[in-house]
């Protein structure tokens, strides 16, 4: 099971209900190791619920989620999976360094990791600043830095580049690529289509279902559209036609 050819994440027939409403319908896909998968789709389409199921904090109705060869949420995965929620989950009454030091201690990561991740997300200058005094973009980067602590084999990042200027966004995608080259698997959600082209593979989601699964090039070719925004629109209308006919 632990061979490198086994997928990092395998989701099969996943159904999830939240607040009495079914938000994921029979979702099935695989994520190969060492790849960057972009999880694309409009707000409310189930991206966050799917990510929560992969890190094992979501109660699921049916289906299986296997992460790095083990059921999602297994105790042994707690050091191997890094997770950053969309809303920053850090202590705003602590400094950046104090936050990173605490989470590093919980993960059993070396203390040098604090310097490393602060540099990776470009927050060296704000290290001693209280988190409550940071800008929205800086706050998001502290949140991301926590997920990079230790040596996670899988990173699940919910909208990590929201609110960042283009230069910073570019730097983060360079970092994601560097991590993938080291063998780390990344699942990155976004609703900004111009980011999608940077991923190795795309999962397009709408209303709790996977509309398409493939490389950006494959998806563009299949739909005959030039950019991914159009591809997405094309796939939606195709799906609607199939449903009504």
């Amino acid at each position: 099971m632990m061979s490198s050819s086994a997928p990092a994440v395998r989701v099969a027939d996943l159904c999830v209900e939240r607040g009495g409403r079914q938000v994921l319908h029979d979702v099935t896909f695989e994520v190969p190791r060492g790849s960057i998968v972009g999880l694309m789709g409009p707000s409310g389409c189930g991206k966050t619920t799917l990510m929560r199921a992969i890190v094992g904090v979501q109660i699921v109705k049916s289906g299986t989620v296997t992460v790095l060869g083990e059921p999602a949420g297994s105790p042994s995965l707690r050091r191997r999976v890094g997770y950053a929620t969309q809303a920053p989950a850090v202590y705003d009454d602590l400094s950046v360094t104090e936050n990173l030091r605490y989470f590093a201690a919980v993960l059993g990561a070396p203390r040098t990791d604090v310097d490393r991740v602060a540099a990776e997300v470009g927050l060296e200058a704000q290290r001693d600043q209280l988190v409550s005094t940071l800008s929205g973009g800086q706050l998001g980067r502290v949140n991301l830095a926590v997920a990079l602590l230790g040596a996670p084999e899988l990173l699940v990042l919910d909208e990590p580049t929201v609110g960042l200027d283009p230069l910073l966004r570019q730097e983060l995608w360079t970092l994601f690529r560097r991590l993938a080259e080291r063998g780390v698997t990344l699942i990155v959600s976004s609703h900004v289509m111009d980011e999608a082209g940077r991923a190795d593979r795309l999962l397009l989601m709408r209303e709790g279902r996977i509309l398409a699964d493939g490389t950006p090039r494959e998806l563009r070719a299949a739909s005959g559209a030039d950019d991914l925004e159009e591809t997405f629109l094309h796939l939606i209308s195709e799906r609607e036609e199939a449903r009504t006919s």
Binding site: R78, R79, L107, G108
Partner: peptide, 8 residues
């Protein structure tokens, strides 16, 4: 929730 995804 973040702590609950960690070995805490």
């Amino acid at each position: 929730e973040r702590l609950m995804t960690m070995p805490m």
